[in-house]
Design a protein around this nucleic acid. Sequence first.
DNA 1: GTCATAGTTATCGTATACGATTTCGTACTT
DNA 2: AAGTACGAAATCGTATACGATAACTATGAC
Lengths: 228, 228
Amino acid sequence: MTETAVGSTAVENAAAQSKSQQAYAAVKARIVEGAYTPGYRLVLAKIAEDLGFSVVPVREAIRRLEAEGLVKFERNVGATVSGIDPTEYLYTMQTLSIVEGAATALSAPLIDSVSIARARAVNEEMRECLEHFDPVRFTALNQDFHSVLFEHCPNPHILDLVHRGWNRLASIRSSTFRFVPGRAQESVREHEALLQLIESGADADTIEKAARQHRASTLDAYLAQAKQ
Amino acid sequence: MTETAVGSTAVENAAAQSKSQQAYAAVKARIVEGAYTPGYRLVLAKIAEDLGFSVVPVREAIRRLEAEGLVKFERNVGATVSGIDPTEYLYTMQTLSIVEGAATALSAPLIDSVSIARARAVNEEMRECLEHFDPVRFTALNQDFHSVLFEHCPNPHILDLVHRGWNRLASIRSSTFRFVPGRAQESVREHEALLQLIESGADADTIEKAARQHRASTLDAYLAQAKQ
DNA sequence: GTCATAGTTATCGTATACGATTTCGTACTT
DNA sequence: AAGTACGAAATCGTATACGATAACTATGAC
């Protein structure tokens, strides 16, 4: 756990990968880790040289990242790590609130008490992170928390959408969007409340609303701050 | 309206497109129109020859289609139009019900009476299609109906997810999944009910549930039939 | 007759090469 | 001094080429 890049295709374990896949994983990792920040110019020839192979597989990798929204690829101009745009952030968060809400509701009936306990442990760690002020770890743990809940999610498509959203948010990590004061504490509290709802066997609709609101609240906190 | 391939990037108007984009549009169109049916083997060299250019842009196009789920691309084996799998159908429909539900709820407050009237007209055409038994046109009109409702959707990301779902369904059009007896009539009725909800200014949650159920019912009808 | 194995063919994956386009810098004009 | 026009450098887009891999076919053994 606590990996950086999220998604089924992120790191296929073997060495028997195509260079195209390797390039995809490498560039994606750099974006998600923050080595390539938004606006960063992705020069194909340079990346190819860095990785030690030609531009063709790199192009394919970039195209794939483009399809996932992590990269903007403009004809005859080049590729850049995509956007800080507040509007884009709003879109992403709103979409995430919907797909996370659905994923949580669909997963809830399938979560056993062991998973609940693990999720609770992760949430405790998050609480500790707050004291030591470790936002990077906090974010990673936050993904872990929800990943535990989604472990038995019956719909991989929805899970994939969640992961895409997370990666997209990760790509803009160091920007102004994250970490509204006080929001993190609230987030930990909401996690606990969500766990109790799941434990109590609350109906799907209630759980979905709670999970959705959990994400939406972070967005609201940002919007409220941005307004000032 | 009543286009075949749906999505923002489907048909960039000019001739000044990259061959990669042309290839993408061409192959996508063939899939969505049903010329390439599921399982169809996409031989890169052959497609390249058909279109009159080399394999490199075709590969990029295929990669993009892969990212959208329309194509399965296996290393050293090749690309095929992706799947009829009932499970896949279930995933897609379930995901669609969620994103369409959200898109409808988000759009509802922004829909004016003119759009409502247009949607209603489309729905009337659908009713007529039922009498002449024109399922292809019915499906196209169905997309038109919802497209009218989504015209002012404030979140393009969600709209994009809707379009991807539609394209995915279109790619399996001629299979056993569509057109459960009686479902089409019900669908037309549900459209009218949905319009009345929107007109009456019902709250977001009610509209979302109705829109979600509209898609879910089609899935349920299929599942019930498949069980027999 | 069926299975295993070797050889052939088809197709993929990637490198290299080069024309096309954009961008940047410099010199020239007003 | 500011703006424009030209030229050079950087970078992209695509074609071609070829080694690598998998699928297919045919031949032989049991």
